[in-house]
Design a protein around this nucleic acid. Sequence first.
DNA 1: TGAACATATGAACAGTTATTCATATGTTCG
DNA 2: CGAACATATGAATAACTGTTCATATGTTCA
Lengths: 100, 100
Amino acid sequence: MENMVRLPDDETLAKLSEFYKVFGDYTRVKLLCQLRQGEMCVQDIADSIGMTQSAVSHQLRILKGMALVAGRRDGKTVFYSLADDHIAGILDMGLEHINE
Amino acid sequence: MENMVRLPDDETLAKLSEFYKVFGDYTRVKLLCQLRQGEMCVQDIADSIGMTQSAVSHQLRILKGMALVAGRRDGKTVFYSLADDHIAGILDMGLEHINE
DNA sequence: TGAACATATGAACAGTTATTCATATGTTCG
DNA sequence: CGAACATATGAATAACTGTTCATATGTTCA
């Protein structure tokens, strides 16, 4: 009874790695940290992290697909924010680790 | 005062993304989950997750470099294990997320 | 409706990365 | 020492991924 955790099945492992892969990119993690400070529209995100609108939009699509961010349309502009508090928690665990 | 968290600097963001990148690969996350159940030598890991000794060794090098696993030599064989409990915690957060 | 604006998307290219194969290093034991 | 075994490593290749450029979609307002 010293360890009850079984090796997850292949599908779960695949999903898990896909999930972490999203955090494993400089641009996306910067984007997530930026959104952590509050919702922002695409162009403002692009300006604040120094990327083109297109690149940001492509990445937001990935983040949205993985349910890490949510979009809210208001007229012409779409405001993005972190999907839930969980995400901020995961960013924190990572930051903790790299600070020893 | 509604949000005290500042955007981490570029170097921190780079480290953070590199850290998560390690979890963002099917093979490595499988390897980490396997090691979670206890220390194992390279060949046994390779057999249990269906990879060549060489591929596993290459990946272990990456994991070791990021301080996610630690190696302990005992004669000819080297036993690897998770570097600390932190790692298991990060795996758990990911598993929680993908299970909604 | 049409012009102006914000965002999304498709294709292509460049850079990155995981695996394989061959081989080197390190360890034990006769 | 030398054979046998376990692990590590270098080079090459195939597959993947992020950005760019061009353009499409969607929205507002005159």
